[in-house]
């Protein structure tokens, strides 16, 4: 499988980006006006604790040295302690990853379940009523604010119909699944607008393509031509679109976690900002950036897997 050889060297190419991410997060926190030691430890820190963190992060030394301390701490897995939760930031994040991962993965899958049938109907009935309706709805859907959509779904499905819980996460997997339905649906609906528009355009191009015409000349029914030739070819650009939008998707999940009080990374970030818990803000921002880079890498893998022409 020589086409997958990039798996070995591509991570090396990502190193400069990871380096850039660490610089930006470092600079962001150092730009906050005030005594950095006090910022990192909070207003009620004891003098001995302040002295300890000054030494650990080299806060009395020049900026480049501080960055070196920051990196060396980072390489030892030391990202500081949360002043609100009083535990290490890494431990804190470890407890918060699951809801966010479930939300992102769940909404991507759900949005494909929505977008693929809608785009197929629109593309196959191009120019007819169904197509116009789907085009209008998906264009309007581009401007759906996820947080508002979440609240509307809560009003409809939780308050009026009582089908799903209003907020929270749950202890068993069954409870969690029940809690995840509305948040995933929220993000998925907002995402499926972009997906549907792009898939529809890709499908229309493929329906009129030479290879689809050749498949028809072999006597295959239109449904087979669509399922076996048009659909796989139009999914290739869609995977790329998803990868490009993954940053947007993570951003959307930050807001949606707040709407549904999901104890995930996004909620941690927002609460960290209001509590001035800067160690947490720094770590979460960095984790999100690294996750985005990794997901793009996975998308490359997926593209190579479904499109045999692609070499990286």
């Amino acid at each position: 499988m020589h086409r997958f050889r990039f798996v070995l060297w591509r991570p090396l190419q990502l190193l400069p980006v990871l380096f850039g991410i660490s610089v930006i997060t470092f600079v962001l926190i150092r730009m906050i006006p005030g005594d950095p030691a006090r910022l990192l430890l909070g207003a009620r820190a004891t003098p001995s604790a302040l002295a300890r963190i000054r030494e650990q992060y080299g806060l009395d030394e020049p900026l480049w040295a501080q960055y070196a301390y920051f990196l060396s701490n980072l390489s030892q897995g030391e990202m500081g302690r949360s002043i609100v939760y009083k535990i290490g930031v890494l431990d804190l994040m470890a407890n918060r990853i699951l809801p966010t991962v479930c939300l992102v993965v769940g909404s991507v899958l759900l949005s494909l379940l929505i977008a693929i049938p809608l785009a197929s109907i629109a593309a196959r009935q191009r120019g007819r009523t169904a197509d116009h309706a789907i085009r209008i709805v998906s264009t309007a859907g581009l401007g759906l604010p996820a947080f508002w959509l979440g609240i509307m779904l809560i009003i409809l499905f939780s308050v009026k119909l009582g089908l799903f819980p209003v907020a929270g996460w749950g202890d068993t997997w069954l409870e969690r699944l029940h809690h995840m339905v509305l948040p995933c649906l929220t993000v998925a609906l907002a995402l499926s607008a972009v997906l549907t528009r792009n898939l529809r355009a890709a499908m229309i191009a493929e329906i009129g393509s030479d290879q689809a015409m050749a498949a028809r000349s072999r006597g295959l029914p239109e449904s087979v031509v669509f399922r076996r030739h048009v659909l796989p070819n139009s999914l290739v650009p869609t995977v790329n679109l998803l990868a490009v939008n993954i940053g947007w998707l993570i951003g959307g999940s930050v807001v949606v976690e707040t709407v549904f009080s999901l104890p995930g990374m996004g909620q941690l970030l927002v609460r960290g900002i209001f509590a001035r818990d800067y160690m947490v803000v720094q770590a979460v921002a960095m984790a999100f950036a690294v996750a985005t880079v990794l997901i793009n890498f996975l998308a490359d893998l997926l593209t190579v897997a479904i499109d045999p022409r692609v070499r990286l």
Binding site: R218, G219, H229
Partner: peptide, 26 residues
């Protein structure tokens, strides 16, 4: 349906450009 039984079964078609008339991902 009847036309589908003629195409491919009774009449085969060869196109000009094999690069674009073959499905690239199949």
């Amino acid at each position: 349906v009847a036309l589908g039984k003629v195409r491919g079964r009774q009449i085969g078609m060869i196109f000009q450009n094999p690069s674009s008339h073959l499905d690239p991902v199949m």
